[in-house]
């Protein structure tokens, strides 16, 4: 049953999409910014992990321990130096800033690492290709399962963090109404910077899984941004879990599309994105501004 297998693989691929979408969704939910450099930052993280793994022969997972805090710091810095300033000259300006940043990052990566495609797969040994056969022609890759598990843990962990911790509550309050948050003693600048740090830290994790499950090159970033965006919009239920659903729908559609034609993978993904978007406009006529709002709703 090739179709059953493709659906299962699609679900697991959805786990990766949820992982990469997590930071984009989080940043939009809190900062109201769509970070167009999102995919490029994921690829940058993949390169950083690859450098550590390759040069000192450490496991990518160990390298992550160093890269995640570093990228969190970069996220903090990004907010304080770039986003905070660009938001001051209008809601659209951060799009321009982050797009400029993306172009810069992609080409700097090309300058440093060249056009060769890289992968972290060689650094994780058997994990890269080991799988279990569960019957009916369905196999489950160990790495795919791990990716899915990490996505679940990350989304669940973020949700818990937002609902149960003081900083999480402060982030939700600021996301909802930054001016009023200030009036109850929350320094919105610091909360924004913390949120950006968290978002970019999750991007580092996603980038590492990108590197382990596939190859990447300096210009892989934009595609990752687009997949992440599609997963969020397809999920669109207003929660981080919606992102997981969206990722799975996207992954399944792509895998089924690839069975139809070699180019079907990407076409089916984009097509599903537009169909879901159209359906939402037609059926509910709802305000598309709430498509993203992962953090604007009541706690679950």
């Amino acid at each position: 049953m090739i179709w059953a297998d493709q659906i299962v693989q699609g679900i697991f691929l959805g786990g990766y999409y949820a992982l990469i979408a997590c930071g984009l969704s989080f940043m939009f939910g809190v900062l109201r910014i769509i970070n167009l450099a999102h995919g490029s930052i994921a690829v940058l993280s993949a390169y950083l992990v690859w450098m550590l793994a390759d040069r000192w022969n450490v496991s990518p997972f160990l390298a992550l321990v160093a890269i995640v805090p570093a990228m969190a710091a970069a996220g903090w810095l990004l907010q304080r130096t770039v986003l905070e300033r660009s938001l001051r000259s209008g809601a659209l300006t951060p799009l321009l800033s982050t797009f400029g940043l993306a172009v810069m990052l992609d080409n700097l990566l090309f300058e440093k690492f060249g056009a060769d495609t890289r992968s972290l797969a060689p650094n994780i040994g058997d994990l890269a290709f080991n799988s279990w056969t569960v019957g009916g022609g369905v196999t489950i890759g160990q790495l795919a399962l791990l990716t899915f598990g990490v996505a679940l843990a990350l989304l669940g962990g973020l949700q818990l963090f937002l609902n149960r911790t003081p900083l999480g509550r402060a982030i939700r309050a600021t996301a909802e109404d930054a001016d009023t948050a200030e009036l109850v003693g929350i320094d919105s600048r610091r909360v924004y910077a913390a949120a950006a740090a968290i978002a970019i830290a999750t991007v580092a994790i996603a980038g590492t899984f990108l590197g382990m499950r596939a190859t990447f090159d300096p210009y892989t970033g934009p595609a990752q941004l687009i997949f992440a965006f599609e997963a969020i919009v397809i999920g669109g239920t207003g929660s981080l879990w919606g992102t997981l659903i969206g990722g799975i729908v996207l992954g399944v559609a792509q895998n089924l599309g690839s069975q139809v034609s070699p180019r079907g993978f990407l076409i089916a993904g984009h097509a599903v994105f537009f169909v879901v978007l159209a359906a939402r406009f037609v059926l509910a006529g709802r305000d598309p501004r709430t498509l993203f709002g992962a953090l604007r709703r009541a706690p679950i």
């Binding site: 509550r169 939700r172 309050a173 909802e176 109404d177 009023t180 009036l183 604007r296 009541a298 706690p299």
Partner: peptide
Amino acid sequence: RLFAGMTVEE
């Protein structure tokens, strides 16, 4: 100007 999406306790 309560945080409408949050509970009273929050």
